[in-house]
Amino acid sequence: MAAGIVMNNFSLKQGHCLELKGLIPKDAKSFAINLGKDSSNYVLHFNPRFDHQGDNKKIICNSKEENCWGKEQRETAFPFQQGAETSICFEYQADHLKVKLSDGQEFTFPIRMPLDTITFLCMDGIELKSFSLH
């Protein structure tokens, strides 16, 4: 995966949503969106895999604290297409993040480390088209 966009010092507060639109490359095997404090601390690692490390059309979610990965959570919702744009909404709540996918499917991922505001985003294997805080 090519080095993707890194964004610092924005402000996603609890009760608010971050909507991202991106273009998935035609030859994508997987892509990742990471939200948190910095590159060592992710509240959410969101990693859809088309065909990667034995996973076929699954979303792998995890957290990372001081560079230590937590326990993976697998989701079977998979409304992604190689070569197409997708839109994903992340709603930040006190104890979970709600992820809303482009086809309306939703799931939640627990907040494992307390963080008042999400200020860091990095993306790999997907081209960012828009970013919007609500």
Binding site: M7, N9, E127
Partner: peptide, 11 residues
């Protein structure tokens, strides 16, 4: 002034 918003590897 707050810390700056920064975006790298943009194209």
């Amino acid at each position: 002034m707050s810390e700056q918003f920064e975006l790298v590897n943009l194209e």
